[in-house]
Write a protein that binds this DNA or RNA. Structure first.
Lengths: 111, 111
DNA sequence: TAATTTCATCGCAATATTACGATTATCGAG
DNA sequence: CTCGATAATCGTAATATTGCGATGAAATTA
């Protein structure tokens, strides 16, 4: 069948998966990196930067926006997008916590 | 059309996306968390833990294994999986670097 | 050796994602 | 108000992902 019976999994696991999904496509990674560098951009700029159609980029932007990773404000006839600092730190926190969960197996080698 | 014209994107962006994909499904997140906690587990244990079929979990394990996030060794008729420490730290590094790329917009508010 | 246990793989169905052309809505310029 | 520019949305095709039953392979046990 299809996708994720999300009620099988804990809220935490579902949330991490949802956040990871945001970065699970190179176009969205590229968009985020572009925003990290220029801290201000428009859809059209990205259409030139990446080689994707306007509709496609708009769709990726919407996904990032729905997760509140980015914010957009209308700037005349253009749009200005930027990283949402609060969410950015929240995500960083979530992943940091996960990565720090790992303990080196001091005793023997496990496998 | 379909998926990612991965040659449109930089090697770095593709790699981040591939790593993020590993965590982009709650079942895989749950598996990783289970390994983080018990640092040793078998497929069958996970079938009880999560509510998925044996074949499904085996498939998720394979994806994690292909990315070298986990390793598995044969233990009699069972399998013993564990986190791959080297890869774990590498991934942590990749994400840390990305998250630290963000600079708070000191001057004005951008959007 | 035959039965059992455990996991991987195959093949397929169901669903999600990605991509894009076409259309629509909004704003600024003339 | 009309036109041009810009980005969101719609509809749809192509592709990827998930999930699982059935089957297969390898080791253990009886």
């Amino acid at each position: 069948m299809g996708l994720s019976k999300s009620d099988l999994f804990s809220k935490e696991h579902n949330e991490i998966a949802a956040l990871a999904r945001a970065f699970a496509h190179p176009a969205r990674v590229a968009i985020v990196f572009h925003l990290l560098e220029t801290k201000d951009c428009i859809n059209g700029e990205l259409v030139l930067e990446l080689g994707l159609a306007q509709a496609t980029i708009s769709q990726h932007l919407r996904e990032l926006k729905e997760l509140e990773i980015i914010r957009g404000t209308i700037e005349g006839t253009k749009m200005s997008y930027c990283i949402n600092p609060d969410k950015w730190f929240e995500i960083k926190q979530v992943f940091d916590t996960m990565f720090d969960q790992f303990e080196q197996p001091t005793d023997g080698d496990c496998c």
